[in-house]
């Protein structure tokens, strides 16, 4: 999980100048980001790095292992809202919410996609255990959500059917 972020070149790109401009008042951390010395994800204190290894896994067990090093138990306290039939596999709205306490992360896995892990969110204390996003699905698949609560993993899943569009497929 704490593998290094892919290397960032030392060049000051246009994007980085934007960062410099926008974070101009943000102190030394922001300057370090702007100079390309530190990836922005690290600029915030103790922010974990992009989990490269987990995103490279092609099945659920390996993705979970790479991401958390733990296994999952099903929980009815994790609620997942996805469409039964996606209106378009390119844009599938996914909403996750849970009544579990001390949630530190929420991840979404799509086992039938080429890479299983779609998104992983880190929730510091004070952030509500609920997130909505839009994901791509290559074909009909379960959508598996994983909630890390008090150090344990709880999950829920639902199938989303992905059909080719009649108009444009």
């Amino acid at each position: 999980m704490s593998r290094a972020v892919s290397s960032v070149s030392g060049e000051v790109s246009a994007g980085r100048r934007l960062v410099l401009h926008a974070l101009g008042l943000g102190g030394m951390a922001a300057l370090a980001v702007a100079a390309g010395l530190v990836p922005p994800a690290r600029a915030a204190e103790e922010a974990p790095a992009w989990p490269k290894n987990a995103f490279a896994q092609k099945d659920q067990a390996h993705a979970l292992d790479a991401l958390y090093g733990k296994t999952l138990e099903a929980s009815d306290k994790v609620s997942l809202d996805v469409p039964e039939i996606a209106e378009n596999g390119a844009v599938v709205p996914v909403s996750v919410t849970t009544s579990l306490p001390n949630v530190t992360s929420i991840s979404v896995l799509i086992p039938e996609n080429p890479y299983t892990l779609a998104a992983s969110y880190r929730l510091p204390e004070g952030t509500e255990p609920s997130v909505s996003c839009r994901l791509k699905m290559a074909k009909t698949s379960d959508v598996v959500v994983v909630v890390e609560s008090a150090g344990k993993l709880y999950g829920a899943k639902k199938q989303v059917k992905v059909t080719l569009g009649g108009c444009g497929g």
Binding site: A86, V162, G165
Partner: peptide, 8 residues
Amino acid sequence: RRMRGDIL
């Protein structure tokens, strides 16, 4: 009605 995945 549905034409494959689409609603017309």
